[in-house]
């Protein structure tokens, strides 16, 4: 390879492609089929993935500038909210209208996540007097029962992937029993991590290993997960970026390498 700006072969050795780029493509894939939906990615790699999807196979995705406007163009992830071409206003109050309408797919982060997709970003320990107070449940309870939810975990570890989360913020599949109003629009689609892509296609919607990133062993993912994962047969490898995708990622969407800061290696 002569440098990141040359066209890499998608069939080339995995070493040519950075892990963050594989993750960005996995995030983009999470939004496949969403069409004209508001996609709300939290974190640099999911933001990169959403923009990549919009520039390739999901041109109708609706994206905000991270503040109060929708973006008419698809600028680099490092662009400041004031520097983008604005399509329409999207203040927080209108975001709730979209949440409740269901025309949204959020990719949140998670301090804890369990095998049924229950997520916690509120606190660690006893809620009444937390050992560690985090940001709060935010919009996770409403998001997860109103529209599609996915998660991004940049550091896959048993501290995040736990048997039981301390405060259910985003709702998982096992909490839907006997709560049809919660189940009606509930979908936890995928979890993208620095090691793998997971979904809830296991028995009783348990977390299943869908693919491992190039260079990652199944055992490595299992060891980094605090509960048994559903593993069905030979686990495929997460797909590599195409030459076009690599060029978009490196030259158009993240020339400053912001994703590398979130996910070195």
């Amino acid at each position: 390879m002569t440098g990141p700006s040359t066209t890499a072969s998608p069939q080339g050795p995995a070493g040519e492609v950075r892990r963050a780029e594989v993750c960005a493509v996995a995030c983009a894939e999470a939004f496949r089929g969403d069409g004209e939906k508001l996609v709300s990615p939290f974190g640099t790699v999911p933001s990169l993935g959403a923009r990549l999807a919009r520039l390739t196979f999901e041109p109708d995705l609706v994206l905000t500038d991270g503040e109060a406007a929708l973006m008419a163009d698809t600028p680099p992830v490092s662009a400041a909210p004031g520097d983008v071409l604005r399509e329409a206003p999207m203040p927080y109050r209108r975001v709730f209208d979209v949440v409740w309408s269901g025309r949204r797919h959020v990719m949140m982060m998670a301090s804890q996540l369990d095998m049924y997709g229950n997520q916690n970003l509120s606190c660690i320990g006893d809620w009444a007097r937390p050992a560690i107070q985090l940001i709060g449940v935010r919009g996770a309870p409403g998001n997860s029962v109103n529209h599609t939810t996915s998660y991004w975990v940049p550091a896959h570890s048993p501290r995040v992937f736990v048997e039981h989360v301390d405060m259910v913020s985003g709702v998982g599949y096992d909490r839907l029993a006997g709560a049809p109003a919660a189940a009606r629009f509930h979908e936890v689609r995928v979890v993208v991590t620095n090691l793998a892509v997971l979904d809830f296609g296991g028995p009783d919607h348990r977390m299943r290993l869908r693919s491992v990133h190039p260079g990652v062993a199944v055992e490595e993912v299992e060891a980094a997960t605090g509960f048994p994962l559903v593993v069905e047969g030979a686990v495929p490898t997460s797909r590599l970026p195409s030459a076009e995708e690599l060029q978009l990622l490196r030259e158009v969407l993240d020339p400053a390498g912001a994703a590398q800061k979130e996910l070195p290696g």
Binding site: W127, A128, V137, P141, G142, S144, V168, L176, F185
Partner: peptide, 13 residues
């Protein structure tokens, strides 16, 4: 009325 909160620990706490 709202769907938000159903299934979550918001109702527990």
């Amino acid at each position: 009325p709202t769907r938000a909160g159903l299934g979550s620990d918001v109702l527990r706490v």
